[in-house]
Write a protein that binds this DNA or RNA. Sequence first.
RNA 1: UCCCCGGUUGUGUAAUGGUAGCACAGCAGACUCUGGAUCUGUUUGUGGGGGUUCGAAUCCUCCCUGGGGAACCA
Length: 576
Amino acid sequence: MSENAPEYLDFIKDAVAKDVAEGKTKAVRTRFPPEPNGWLHIGHAKAIFVDFGVAEYFKGECNLRFDDTNPEKEDISYVEAIKRDLRWLGYDWADREFYASDYYETLYELARKLIRMGLAYVDDLDEDEIRAYRGTNVPDKNNITYTPPGKNSPWRERSVEENLDLFAKMRAGKFADGAKTLRAKIDMGHPNLLMRDPVMYRIRREPHYRTGTAWCIYPMYDFQHPLSDAIEGVTHSLCSLEYEIHRPLYNWFIEHCEVFPSRQIEFARLNLTRTVLSKRLLIQLVRDKKVAGWDDPRMPTIAGLRRRGYSPEAIRDFLGRIGIAKTDSMVDIQLLEHCVRENLNKKASRHMAVLRPLKLVIDNWPKGQVEFLEAVNNPEDPAAGTRKIPFTGELFIENEDFRELPPPKYFRLFPGNQVRLRYAYIITCTGFDKDPVSGEITAVRCSYDPATRGGDAPDNRKVKGTIHWVSAEQAVDFEARLYDHLFAVDRPMDVAPGTSFLENFNPQSLEILSGAKGEPALACVEAGTCVQFERLGYFCADKSVLNADEDSKPGALVFNRTVGLRDTWAKIEKKG
RNA sequence: UCCCCGGUUGUGUAAUGGUAGCACAGCAGACUCUGGAUCUGUUUGUGGGGGUUCGAAUCCUCCCUGGGGAACCA
């Protein structure tokens, strides 16, 4: 699973290795803790790669734990989706599938333990009062904000007995939602605001997707997470940078609850150019109908990438290359694209397809004759074999492979020029038909050289251009969906204040071509399979996880462009 | 304001006091029945000042700069 693993240790493995060497850790155990409130995306994949990767490197185990302590947002459907994507990515958690919600009773007892130790108390302050007492930023007389020390809650010094009694009543539903909280008694003057008596439990009469109405109090992340780790014997709790400031609190709960000490280590989350990786923003794209859904092939979700044609190997290769560090970074999406190309180049079988068909007529071709020409399925993999493709006197070629007036360095078809039809014959362009009204070129005319069958030139003459084609009569029709980056700029979030990132949405992120033509073999490509259309790019027969009846199938073929081939010509043309 | 964490070519990431390397991108060339693939070559970097040291990306210090935090979310 760690193909392309670098030979050096990243800073996390380095730290874990030291813990092992010093005997602090015997068997390494990590965990991947998704909250079941959304779909997994490539950013999560990095976390998965780190969590499972570190465990694997030290021959330990990584648990899957659903961090489900907020009943308002979570749902079983997300659990299923997360497990599906995790498996697809190639990860296995065996029987170690856990839920923080299974720990509610233990967590409750640990909270009582803290109360008995005089380290937790029931507070009657409401939400706004808690914020005010905490000492959130306030503007002073010069309108400069500052952070004053917090003030103790008037309920902070309740007796252990009273706290125990009130906490039991909270659980029993004797109080209204939000009327009381259980708080850790730490230090209202602490410079780290999170240490100013954080809330451990809140009252919320919201049915939970797993525990139903059994509980009306729910534990908060800061209290629950370190203890869930402890319950599972997690030795290293790896998370993103934003939790760095939570670490003192994480350690405080471990120390005072006197439980198994897990070590939290933080690393930078993934950012990718020309897309967004935040659940909130992704939801907005779906809600505003900018994309067709969570598994729209433009989405950076695992399901979106899969539908786009990305393979798990390509994604893992990418994750291995970007490295792990504490620097906030913005990875160029071209690296991801490089990884798919490299992966698909090795395994995708080649086909010929024409996206924007232009009729090509071979005037000296024997009328009605059909020949079957041999084509290799994958030049990178001889074992993939060959296939026969029908060839006739009426073909479709790519519209952009013909120019009435060729620009400099253009070596495809133009009047008088020779090109090779891939695997077929060398032809010479003799002219073209033009609609006198619209000025549109309706057909290109040429003659073929019978001595060049298969595409070889017996006289060794140099033919610079080779273009792809499809025999008109035998062609299968399909719909091509050409996908491009979701956003037209590298950093979609960089917008003027008051404007939305949606301003940067790329209107050309999807182009649908309904009249595409392909060689007959395309009719049998199964939904979900990726192929290369020669000279065009990698395409994946559409397959959605949501509605199977929309899948690509014979008679209704749909191919999604995963990524185009490297296009040197486009660069030349751009430079002029 | 306060607290925490960062700054190595265009973008990521190594070098753990001892020759600043790798990948992607870029550029140039070779080869090619995909303007693909492959191969070769190549441009660009330690945020700044001071200090310690024979020697500093690395240690100290000040400054600059970026990110994060101040939810009864995770």
